[in-house]
């Protein structure tokens, strides 16, 4: 897995540099409210703060999305869906961890139902601190992510491919099983 030759993760061709310019100016985020941080997204999208100025808009399905916002704590039940959804998104894809809960569990550090560290399961490009991040912080994060994409630093999707087995192993450790079994999935 790691012996992929000498191709460095952040090396880009000219075309990819141009593509990154485009990607940074048109970011579609997945319309999936995984946690309570999502309550600050409508204010940032609507008339007062207006995220669409930067070409950022919500997208209905993971197939079309570029950014996955993990808005706050993740319960294990959601994590299964998050992994599934993340793998459905087309490359290149970026993940923003929203709020303290994604960094180290935050206020739910001792909860039996929520994970403590998001980048253990899927690669995270950027974290926003706070509970919950204000719209201004969300804007700051998006601007920062745009810069990172332009510089070719937002490489989470490449890391996921490189270290796929490590991520899978971690996912299995915490979840037991990533595949969902219930009445409906029979």
């Amino acid at each position: 897995m790691s012996n992929r030759g000498n191709v460095k993760i952040d090396e880009r061709t000219v075309w990819e540099k141009i593509a990154d310019q485009l990607r940074s100016r048109s970011m579609w985020m997945l319309h999936y409210c995984t946690g309570c941080g999502a309550v600050e997204l409508p204010p940032s999208m609507t008339s007062r703060f207006d995220l669409e100025r930067f070409g950022i808009g919500p997208m209905a399905t993971p197939r079309q999305a570029d950014i996955f916002l993990i808005t706050g704590y993740l319960s294990v039940k959601t994590l299964r869906r998050v992994i599934y959804t993340y793998e459905k998104m087309p490359d290149p894809k970026y993940v923003i961890g929203f709020g303290s809960c994604t960094i180290n569990g935050g206020i739910y550090y001792d909860s039996y139902a929520t994970i403590n560290r998001l980048d253990y399961y899927i690669p995270v490009d950027l974290y926003i601190a706070g509970c919950m991040p204000r719209p201004e912080a969300i804007f700051e994060a998006f601007t920062k992510l745009m810069e990172m994409i332009r510089k070719g630093e937002a490489n989470g999707w490449k890391r996921y491919k490189e270290n796929y087995e490590w991520y899978k192993q971690n996912q299995l450790r915490s979840l037991g099983e990533v595949i969902i079994h219930d009445e409906f999935h029979e």
């Binding site: 704590y73 319960s75 039940k77 959601t78 869906r81 739910y108 909860s111 929520t114 409906f184």
Partner: peptide, 18 residues
């Protein structure tokens, strides 16, 4: 139709006891 809750379960009632 079947409801499927639990995606936002954090175990508040347990955490509050702690």
């Amino acid at each position: 139709a079947r409801p499927m809750p639990g995606f936002l379960h954090r175990g508040f009632e347990k955490l509050m006891e702690r």
